[in-house]
Simulated assay, not measured.
Amino acid sequence: MSIADNFQTIRQRIEQAAVKAGRDPKTVQLVAVSKTKPAEAISEALSVGQTIFGENYVQELVAKAVELPKEICWHFIGHLQSNKVRQIAGLVDLIHSVDRISLAREIDRQWGEIGKSCDVLVQVNISQEANKSGTTSEELLDLVKEVAALPHLRVKGLMTMPPFFDDPEGARPYFRALRELSGKVEAAGIANVEMRELSMGMSGDFEAAIAEGATLVRVGSALFGERDYGSK
C-alpha cells in the first residue's frame, strides 16, 4: 500500500468513527507522525492532502522544516527539553507535550523574544506510568493556571498517551478520563484557556479515541509504514 492509499483508508476510518460517535468528521484532525521518516515521505503525504505533521525530535524537525514547503503545519508531539525550545520557536504551530511549568516558562520566553504567542496542550500522564511524561490528574488544574498566566502561551487543550493494549477498547477508559479532565478545566473558567483540543489516539487505537472525543489523532505507522528507528 502506498502512502496515498493509506491516507485515504485512514481518512475513511476517521470519518466512520466520528459518524458512529455522532460527531462531525470535520472535528477530527489527522496529525501525521513523521518521526524517522524522510522528507520524501512527508512530501508524498502532503501531495494527497495531509497538512499537519507531528515530530518528536527537535533536531529532526528543524532539518525537515528547512527542506520542505512552508505551508506544512508542524506540531511538536514528543518530550521537549527546555534547552532545545529556542530551536523551534516560531516554527511549530502547536506543542502537544507541555508537562511542567519550567518548560512552559522557557516556551514563553523564546516565543516572547520573537514577538509571537505559542499554542500548547498540557500533557497528562493519566496511567501514571513511570516511562511516560505528563503531569498528574491531580496537579493538572494548578499547572494549567500557571501556564495560562504566561503572556506568550495559549492553552488549547490536553494530550495523553494511554498504556498499550492489544485490544484498543482497553485504552478507552484513559481517553474518557482525559475528556472528563478537559471538562473540569473548562468549568474552572480560567482566563486564556480554551479546551478545544484533545490529542489522543494513535495508529492502533485512534477510533476508540474518536469515540471518546479526540480532536487530534496522532497516526504514524498506519500512514507511513513501520518506523525505521535506525534513521533517528
Rank of each mutant, 00 (worst) to 15 (best):
A104H: 02
L68H: 06
L216C: 04
V98D: 05
A191N: 14
L153W: 14
E106W: 00
L94G: 13
K84P: 12
T136W: 02
L30I: 07
L153V: 09
Q59N: 04
P163V: 06
V48H: 04
A32N: 11
I114G: 00
I114V: 10
I77R: 09
L223G: 00
Q87F: 13
V147P: 11
L181M: 13
W74K: 05
G201F: 12
E226T: 08
I190G: 09
Q110G: 00
D108Q: 02
L140F: 02
L61A: 02
V62T: 06
V193R: 09
A222K: 05
E129Q: 05
L153I: 11
T136P: 11
Y229M: 03
D166Q: 14
G22M: 06
A32P: 06
V28Q: 13
E71K: 12
I3Y: 06
R227S: 04
P168A: 01
D167K: 10
E71A: 12
L223R: 01
D93W: 11
Q87W: 09
F164M: 14
G157M: 11
L61C: 01
L80E: 04
I101N: 08
R196W: 05
E40L: 04
R227M: 04
L94K: 06
G134C: 02
T136R: 02
T36N: 13
K232M: 12
Q59L: 03
F165C: 09
V28G: 08
G183V: 03
V193Y: 02
Y57T: 01
W111A: 01
A148S: 15
K35I: 11
D142G: 10
G204D: 07
E129Y: 01
